[in-house]
Simulated scan of single mutants.
Amino acid sequence: MAIIDPRLDGAEQAQARPLWQRLAWMAAIWLGSVLALGVVAMLIRYWLSSPQS
């Protein structure tokens, strides 16, 4: 049984995703942004620690 936003009308309720699916997307987007931030931070750290000639 899906929890649907009661503010949506009939057509929008038919297309609304279940709560677990919306939360899974939010978690996936959050995880992707954390991983992207980690990659950028590691690149900056590598760039700053590279030997200067």
Rank of each mutant, 00 (worst) to 15 (best):
S50V: 00
R22F: 04
I44R: 04
S53Q: 09
I29L: 12
G10Y: 02
A16I: 09
R17E: 14
M42A: 15
A36I: 05
R22Y: 06
I4W: 03
L8M: 05
L48C: 03
Q21A: 15
W47Y: 06
M1G: 13
V39Y: 08
A11N: 11
L43N: 01
A11Y: 03
W25G: 13
L19W: 11
E12R: 08
R22C: 01
R22D: 02
L23I: 07
D9M: 08
E12P: 00
I3C: 15
P18K: 10
Y46I: 00
L23T: 04
G10K: 09
Q52I: 04
G38R: 05
G32K: 02
A16V: 07
L37D: 07
L37K: 05
R22H: 10
A24L: 13
A24M: 15
P51T: 04
L37S: 12
A28S: 12
D5I: 04
W30V: 07
W47C: 00
I3L: 15
L31R: 00
Y46K: 01
V39P: 01
A2L: 05
S50N: 07
S53T: 10
M26S: 06
G38Q: 10
W25C: 02
G38H: 02
A14M: 08
Y46D: 01
S49I: 01
G38N: 10
G10E: 06
A28N: 09
L8Y: 06
Q15M: 11
R17V: 09
G38T: 10
M26R: 02
S49Y: 00
A14F: 06
A41S: 13
M26D: 09
V40F: 05
E12V: 04
L23M: 13
A24W: 14
A36V: 03
L8E: 02
S33L: 09
S49L: 00
V40S: 07
S53L: 08
I3P: 03
I29R: 08
W25P: 00
P51L: 05
L48G: 01
A16M: 04
M42K: 04
A24T: 12
W30E: 01
A24R: 12
V39W: 04
Q52V: 04
L31V: 03
I29N: 11
M26G: 12
L19A: 06
L31H: 01
D9A: 12
L23W: 12
